[in-house]
């Protein structure tokens, strides 16, 4: 019985190895599906479509990379589809980090494990910025720490990337926060701050830019590595370098168990797609710059994001 099992297992693993070998040799032999677990029209969608379009050029064989929107449950539906797909590299998906990892860290029942995904690259990131109303008396991070009361922060709901990022920032920097949660999106809660629903908001720098330009919002600190706003210090300059890069990262992953050789091919194609002339022109026009990472660099970035949550578990509390 035992022997028979071993034999079968051995045969199976041989077969798998053989399949993997042959698959990566000829990969790709058919069209690749690029899942987008979000609705058409948003940042996740447009960036993914641009990469899908250009990466096809850089694959060893001439196939299409077909974008497919599978919105639902804040991305959870799409991640579930990726997890359940065949681990052959023909299904990849854009992954919103840290948004994708938060449900499982907060104990939600999910049918995927983000830590098991095979990372094939990062397309871009949107670092966050912390801003207050243009009329606010708060001028710096120091003012927030010395406020004498909790900072009131309009935000999307518990478990969202914005909510969690505010939690991370308050835990690391050390200031009390009172949330006004439940806004539909970043624009809505930024306007909430302008209106006086709360003191401060945290959202991608891209979303904030026009509000800073119009003077409705004052930037307090940006989580970019290098500030793109005059007079707004980076979080490293403010004394918290470990928070640099806090924000949304648009990563690409393949199904858990995808052979390394295939992941490498995909990673190389995404690398070239991000540097492609057409992509660069698009990035300039839409002001959505690529900040690309290879597969292994992406893995390191995921580990780093997870590390912050491990180090500061309080950031995941309600």
């Amino acid at each position: 019985m035992n022997n028979k099992f071993l034999l079968t297992a051995a045969a199976a693993s041989f077969a798998l190895a053989g399949m993997a070998g042959s698959a990566s040799a000829g990969f790709p032999e058919k069209d690749i599906t690029f899942l987008i677990p979000f609705s058409p029209g948003g940042g996740m969608d447009s960036t993914s479509r641009q990469i899908a379009k250009t990466m096809a050029k850089y694959l060893p064989n001439k196939v299409n990379v077909v974008p497919k929107n599978v919105p639902g449950a804040g991305g959870r539906k799409g991640y579930g589809i990726l997890a359940k797909s065949k681990p052959d590299g023909y299904t990849i998906s854009v992954i919103n980090m840290p948004g994708a990892i938060i449900p499982q860290l907060t104990g939600k029942k999910v049918n995927f494990d983000v830590t098991k995904f095979v990372w094939v690259g990062r397309m871009s990131t949107s670092p966050y910025l912390l801003g207050v109303s243009g009329k606010s008396s708060i001028k710096s991070l120091k003012d927030i720490k010395n406020l004498g009361r909790a900072l009131k922060v309009p935000s999307t709901g518990f478990g969202s990337t914005a909510y969690t990022s505010v939690s991370v920032a308050k835990t690391v920097v050390g200031f009390p926060v009172k949330f006004v949660s439940g806004y539909k999106g970043s624009k809505q809660y930024i306007v909430g701050v302008v209106r006086g629903d709360g003191d401060a908001a945290m959202a991608p720098t891209q979303t904030f830019r026009k509000f800073l330009k119009s003077g409705d919002i004052r930037g307090i600190v940006t989580f970019e590595a290098k500030s793109s706003f005059k007079g707004v210090p980076t979080i490293a300059e403010a004394g918290y370098p470990e928070l640099t890069g806090l924000g949304v990262e648009r990563m690409v992953a393949a199904t858990p168990g995808t052979p390394a050789a295939i992941a490498k091919i995909l990673s190389a194609a995404i690398t070239k797609a991000a540097a492609d002339v057409d992509s660069q022109a698009w990035a300039k026009k839409t002001r959505r710059p690529f900040s690309h990472l290879t597969g292994s660099q992406t893995q390191a970035a995921v580990d780093r994001a997870l590390g912050i949550f491990k180090k500061y578990p309080a950031a995941l509390a309600k």
């Binding site: 029209g41 447009s46 624009k187 306007v191 509000f211 119009s214 409705d216 839409t286 002001r287």
Partner: peptide, 24 residues
Amino acid sequence: IPGSAEMAIFLGVLILHGLEPGPM
């Protein structure tokens, strides 16, 4: 801020064309 579902998608279209909806 989109006032309706149609408008939400429409704003996405504007962004794709390099126009940023916002206070400006």
